[in-house]
Structure formats: structure tokens, C-alpha cells
Design a protein around this nucleic acid. Structure first.
Lengths: 239, 239
DNA sequence: TCAAAAGTGTTTTATCTACACCCATGA
DNA sequence: TCATGGGTGTAGATAAAACACTTTTGA
């Protein structure tokens, strides 16, 4: 990322990168993966992981490769989608850099190993980050905000919430995902009804998991459906 | 768009363009603006309007400029949003070209004037286009498909449908937008109720418009709301 | 006065919300 | 047997779907 963008003035070429907003739930809060930049620009500042798209790969493949490089996790276990392109002329002081931001969701992942060019990689609580949007390098604060808004919306009409859960999970765990991402409490019994009624959202495994206290909980795995019908609306019309 | 992308191999630079899927409703059907390409590659094939992003402008500004160049319409009257980035290595035979596809919606626009590098520009019915997805150059068939799916979804939970209407419109005209985009009939009375109940969707002007036959219709203008609450769900659970 | 399109009302049905209540387990 | 969390049932409010019905105009 350090090469000077020698002005290809006539042809107006750009450097194209992918950046990743990788969310997970750790210690009961929503967290995003950050790296501490070891190089200029923004040396010492926190940033989203990312890197150049190589000439032979698609944008999605580039994002998947960076994802694996930064987290060391099998990308097949993560939900990955494109968020959007960010290309304001001033967003990178080195010159024109257009980044294709991606959004990844995963279960509580192992502490990431340091990426190739990343000195440190660590999970940062999203809540703190939103309070100080300029804490991140480039326009990455904006990207995190947009990514979070995307996730909040997608929980309403898709089944991606299961991407935050391990292979098998309880309905209480799934409800915690909604409560943490939306930042509001949900009625346990109504949530259970909606999830089990929605076709293909979750499938019972037939197994149970003992709890620290109380009745053991039934375990479920993700179902085949990607879209949620009917959707879960987070804020009904409340006059 | 004709310059050879002389391989900047070491630095892997890309040409960044914007492409526009501009939808309107003409003659009772949904139409998208196409141009006939006059140059290689895909000379003679139809394509979406678009062009290079200039070094000083944001992606949105580039899209807005292309929009004005192709349609000659004040961009303030159109709804414009980013759709997504398309950058598969093989999508342009000249080399790596990443395009940031945008989506624009507008009322029945004047027949577009030919753009700068576009021999012809014309409105093509979307329905015919979907039947022959390979009719378009590059991956533009895919972009049109994705754009249409985006519009269909946004009608459910936003107020963008008014972007298809002129400054003032009747509720029947607004309903026709939904019916055309979704491709299914809606109950007029229930539609009316939902629209007028939804806060900030439309505002009555107090005026009326005589109809070719029957009672004159009340005229409305777009309201201030951008999000629709509660949303309009197109296909309820019909087990 | 008739046709046509706008606009209102009503009935039925489904769904959401809130909350009471029961179940299964460990201590 | 008690506390704890999982899980079920139910009554009232709210909204959606279907469709009958009324209103207003031009011919």
C-alpha cells in the first residue's frame, strides 16, 4: 500500500482495494476487526483490514482472500457480501484510491493472527467506535457506520443472524444477536414463535444443551432459507 | 473509453467507470435507458450509459454528470443511488475495468438526446430485456437485473416510488408504479389506505385532475418521508 | 341516466404485543 | 423445594385482504 500513485494523468487510473468490516459478537457485545496501521498514511491509527485487488481475481475473491489473510478463518464459515464503493477524491492522501467495502459476519472467532502488513489485529467494541467516528483512518468510520446500518436492516428480512452463531445454537443465543445488533430488548416468547414459524430459518437438531441454571435449551442449526418471510420488523409504528 | 490499458503491471491500476441503470415508466411499461455502442468492444451492441470517473469528482458526482450528459435532465429531479461495484477480471476485454453501477429513477422523461460518445440513446422496455439477458454489452444485463431487484425491494420499505411520478400525481398513478414494477395487481382501496396512512409518504395538494372518464382524482405531491413505516410487503405469506 | 373511475366502509382473518403460566434442571 | 431460565398459551389490539358500496364526473 506504500507505492506512490505516479499520476497516470491522461488515463485517470485508480488503485482499487477491498476493505472489510468484519463483525462478530464477543463478550456480549458487537465487535469489529481493526488493525493498527504501521505505515503512512495514518500511521498508528486504527483501520479496517483490506488490501489491493489483484489483477486475476474478482472483487469478491479479493475480499475473501483478505478475509482469510487477516483472520485465518475458513471463509466458508463467514457470511460475506459487498457493501459498496467508496471513492471520494480526498479519502486517501496518496491519490485516487477506490475501495470496495465488504461486510463479513461470523461467530465468535479466534483472536485474529496478525495479517501480512498489519502490525496488530484486534476486536474493537462497535459501541465505543460509534462514539468517536474519526478514530479510524481514511473514511473507515463511515464504512463501519454504513455496514452496521446494513446489518441492522438485513436482520429484518434475511436469516443472516445465524451467521453470528456457532454451528449449533439455542434460540436465546439467536435472540441475543438481534438484541445486541438492534440495541433493544425483545420478548423471548414472541421471538421464539416468530423464528420457529418462519419457514427454513432454523432447524431443530433434536439435541439439548445444559444451562448454568434452569431447563436445558434445545439446539438448532441454520435452515436453508436466506430470506425471512414474514420479516421481523424492529420498530413497529409506535405513534 | 478506447484507450488501451497499457499494463501497469506492478501497481495493478484499474480504470474506474460509472454505469447507470436509469428507469422510467413510459407507455405503461417499465423502461431503461440504453445506448447503442459505436466503438469496440461490443460495437453495435446495446449498453448502459456511463463513462470514466474524473479525478476530481466523487463517484456520485461522476454518476450525476453522466446522468445529465445522457438525458439532459436536471439531476435534482431524479432519484440517484449507488447500486454496487462490478469488477470481474473478464468483464471488459480491454483490461481491468471496475464500474460503480448506479441506479436512477425518474418520471416519464423527454426522449434523451444522444450522449457525447453515444450514437443513439433510447428507452427499452425492461420486460423484453429480461428475456434476453445477453443482449447487452459487458455485464450490463446482470446490472439491469440487480438494479430491478433493488427497485422492487425498495418500493417495499421506502417512498422512492414517487420518483417515477411527476411533481403532482394521483394515487392511481402511484399504484400503477407499484403494479408495473412488481408485476402484480394491487387492490385500489387497500393501496389508497396504506399510502394515506403512512406518515409523510404523500401530501394532498387540494387540487383535482379531471379524468377521461369518471370522477376527478385528487392530486398529491411527495411527502418528506424517505422510509416507509409500516412497509408495504408485496407477497405476504400465502402458504 | 348510464358508464367509468375515484373514494369509503365493512367483514373476516391473520398477526403482533403483552403477559400469565407451565416445564425441566441443578443446587 | 426453590431459583433459574426454557418454553407454551391466551386475550386484546392492530393491521391486512377481500369486496360491497357510495360519490362524482362526462357523455
Amino acid at each position: 500500500m506504500d507505492d506512490r500513485l505516479t499520476g497516470a494523468v491522461g488515463v485517470e487510473l485508480s488503485l482499487v482495494t477491498v476493505d472489510l468490516a468484519i463483525f462478530t459478537i464477543r463478550n456480549g457485545e458487537l465487535a469489529v476487526l481493526l488493525i493498527d496501521r504501521g505505515k503512512e498514511p495514518f500511521s498508528g491509527r486504527a483501520a479496517l483490514p483490506g488490501g489491493r485487488v489483484r489483477s486475476h481475481e474478482t472483487l469478491g475473491e479479493g475480499a475473501q482472500r483478505e478475509l482469510q489473510e487477516e483472520t485465518g478463518v475458513d471463509p466458508g464459515r463467514l457470511h460475506l457480501e459487498q457493501l459498496g464503493a467508496y471513492g471520494d477524491p480526498g479519502r486517501d492522501p496518496r491519490g485516487r484510491v477506490v475501495t470496495i467495502a465488504h461486510l463479513a459476519l461470523g461467530p465468535d472467532l479466534p483472536v485474529p493472527r496478525g495479517g501480512t502488513d498489519a502490525a496488530h489485529a484486534y476486536w474493537a467494541p462497535v459501541e465505543e467506535l460509534l462514539a468517536t467516528p474519526d478514530a479510524l483512518a481514511f473514511d473507515h468510520g463511515r464504512i463501519v457506520t454504513d455496514a452496521l446500518e446494513r446489518v441492522r436492516g438485513e436482520l429484518e428480512y434475511t436469516t443472516v443472524a445465524t451467521a453470528f452463531c456457532p454451528d449449533v445454537f439455542t434460540l436465546t443465543e439467536l435472540r441475543h444477536v438481534y438484541e445486541l445488533v438492534w440495541g433493544l430488548p425483545l420478548d423471548p416468547s414472541n421471538f421464539r414463535r416468530k423464528v420457529t414459524r418462519a419457514d427454513g430459518f432454523v432447524e431443530p437438531t433434536g439435541q439439548q444443551r445444559p444451562q448454568p441454571a434452569g431447563r436445558p435449551a434445545a439446539l438448532y442449526r441454520p435452515g436453508p432459507a436466506r430470506l425471512l418471510s414474514p420479516p421481523f420488523l424492529r420498530a413497529a409504528v409506535h405513534q
